[in-house]
């Protein structure tokens, strides 16, 4: 399992979201961020550079 997200990045993203965490909340969510790291690492890189997302708009 990967490490949690770097703390500076974590704090910046939480601040960007407008959230203020208690130390206990911060510790819990920072620890859980390892699951996000695992997921995002699994999705990069995409093999096909031109692969469209599944949200392409069809008029």
């Amino acid at each position: 399992m990967p490490e949690p997200m770097p703390e500076k990045l974590f704090d910046a993203l939480i601040a960007h979201a407008g959230l203020v965490l208690t130390p206990a909340q911060r510790a819990s969510i920072l620890n859980a961020s390892r699951h996000l790291t695992a997921a995002t690492e699994r999705l990069r890189p995409q093999d096909q550079v031109a692969l469209e997302p599944a949200t392409v708009f069809r008029p």
Partner: peptide, 18 residues
């Protein structure tokens, strides 16, 4: 709060993989 850490690029990579 954890979900707030997912970036737009992460989301679109996930939709591409989808």
């Amino acid at each position: 709060a954890l979900a707030a850490l997912v970036t737009a690029a992460d989301y679109l990579q996930a939709q591409r993989r989808r």
